[in-house]
Design a protein around this nucleic acid. Structure first.
Lengths: 196, 196
DNA sequence: GTCTATATAAAGATAGAC
DNA sequence: GTCTATCTTTATATAGAC
């Protein structure tokens, strides 16, 4: 399962980028091979189990990377919730969009159910739960009031990911700056709830 | 172009739902025909110009419906921004998810560039701009302070759409209730900015 | 309006030479 | 590790009968 040849790494890297950008159905084996610069038949040397298996493998990598990036951002910003969320925003905006709606409604239904369930649960654990945990700690410190922390965490995630909509060209302001504005507003909102 | 036969309407209705759920690449002509209950060859009687053209046509309908639904929600709630945003949330949650990230990064690149550009600009005009206009009016009334209203409008949209992630089964709370909580927090946040 | 039959092209995948 | 060649399946699309 693990032969970290350099060619295989190139394949996984390209596949990860393309699948993340366009989703499972819109990326073909030939697309991936073409970007790697090899014939699509050669791809099966590195990924004998085929497209679906490749998708799950690279999504696992994506998710693991996000788990790491978000955990680092939250650890680094602690115990200041604002800095933690700024860090999460910087991380998410540094990565290709993680389109959870597409993952749930389009990609996962194309896979067998155990693989699909696995992706959804690890994605949730990597992306949403760490934010919820940070919110919980802030709540314990009295920085924020009583809210549905799962709802909040999902909201913050969606809020930041939504900035991936802006085409790079179209941007008047840096996305990170816009993310900070949204985080500030959100935080001001939850802090309002505290003082009641 | 417009022969509103009943069979054609059924085709468009099914196509609209499937394309909205899974995106352009993940839906086949056969999928649509199967759900309508006809042979896939028969589909070309109603949609002679093929899949890409069908996609653009039904996305136009989706977008037009959203333009109407959102405009109504905003008109109905005026001049109370909270009620307006509650209305927008109720509308968006009553519809299939409108996955703008997928539209931008996956669906549109599969189409020819003029069709793609048309979809993106009408989608923005239907979904984001009306919210921005409502925010502008609220700002004019002094209900909210100085913010990047485009950023805010996009944020509110993303915030609500993110609730489509929750599988129906998985929900502990009604999504609309969760949307209200998020809108309340957001509004409290922007109102904080006013009083500075 | 719907079907059967068929054409054409693309996608996923395998075998075997180099 | 990569290629050519081939196979199988699936997808889009067309022609013509009913």
């Amino acid at each position: 399962m693990d032969t970290p040849s350099e060619a295989r790494e190139r394949v996984l890297h390209v596949a990860e980028r393309l699948f993340a950008q366009r989703g499972y159905a819109a990326v073909t084996i030939k697309d991936i091979a073409a970007e790697v610069g090899i014939h699509h038949a050669s791809l099966y040397h590195h990924v004998p189990k085929g497209k679906a298996s490749l998708f799950v493998e690279v999504m696992d990598r994506t998710i693991a990377r996000h788990a790491d990036g978000i955990a680092r951002a939250i650890a680094h910003g602690a115990p200041d919730l604002r800095q933690q969320l700024y860090g999460v925003a910087a991380w998410l905006l540094s990565q290709p969009p993680m389109d959870m709606i597409r993952l749930v409604h389009s990609d996962v239904p194309s896979l067998d159910s155990t693989a699909g369930y696995h992706l959804l649960s690890t994605a949730h654990a990597a992306l949403i739960e760490p934010i919820a945990v940070a919110l919980q700690a802030a709540q314990a410190r009295g920085d924020i009031g009583s809210c549905d922390l799962g709802n909040l965490a999902g909201g913050i995630f969606s809020l930041i990911q939504g900035l991936h909509l802006l085409p790079e060209a179209y941007q008047q302001r840096p996305r990170l700056e816009m993310a900070h504005e949204l985080v500030d507003i959100f935080l001001a909102g939850v802090q309002t709830r505290t003082s009641r």
